[in-house]
Amino acid sequence: MKHLDKLENRSVHILREAYSEFEQLGMLWSIGKDSTVMLWLARKAFFGHVPFPLIHVDTNFKIPEMIEYRDKLALKWGLDMVYGQNAKALESKQTFPDGNTSRLNCCRNLKTLALKNTLNGNWPRYRLNHEKGEYEVEEKPESFTGVIVGVRADEEGSRSKERYFSPRNRSNDWAVANQPPEFWDQYKTDFAPGTHVRIHPLLDWTELDIWEYIAREKIAMVSLYYNRGKGTRYRSLGCYPCTNPVESEAKTNEEIVAELKTGKFSNIAERSGREQDKEDGGGLEQLRRDGYM
């Protein structure tokens, strides 16, 4: 079996296990290439359907094309689209672009806290009404017990320690040193009340795998990933104040694959354009323990 087929089959298997075992299941969709591939894999797993909501944490500082792409796809593919945000921090301007906090603190406010309170239903969630084409406040949002997340083991040190099914305790903590065993395609699907499980179908994929798969399946990514004439493109997407494009001529999926394989990026870390990673040696890891993706 070919490498990409192996990866695809395993991811589909994991998504189906998650769907069978978790009643309150949702998938985080950051609009980036990884979680968009994951969304595509869900359509594979469920034969064109996506039988659970997609959750987006909107920091309000996302590059505008991302939101546009999100809503276009949600309507086209009939997705149950939900988003949440940290309204309070945005209102009181406790953000890095407003000049009131560090980059890492801004991530904590707009991503980690927003995510946590969107998942547990403590803060308002907005759900796409397909007939009207607009978002409405969700009535009685319930807490998710299973959350599908598109992290990859090769992205960065701490992620290489993850499980496919990774439990989080009541306060969202990740007990790195005490993770459940996972073998023979049997996963942690039994969990105590109040805890939840993160599900990672893309753990074995690399950045190159992702792009080779996008090219093979002809999945239309958000245009920011491609050079649109200025000789730059984004390699990793985030909020515009903290994400820089890289210099690249790649205009198509195939050109990106070629660039990753042989070109100048083959030895440069993918998140090198993400400024928050540079603030503190273990910053990202601390964020992850607190629930950041």
């Binding site: 298997h13 189906r16 296990e17 769907y19 069978s20 469920f46 034969f47 064109g48 359907h49 039988p51 009939g78």
Partner: peptide, 9 residues
């Protein structure tokens, strides 16, 4: 793993 019947569409 499951017997799926998604009636959407």
């Amino acid at each position: 793993q499951g017997v799926y019947k998604f009636t959407k569409g």
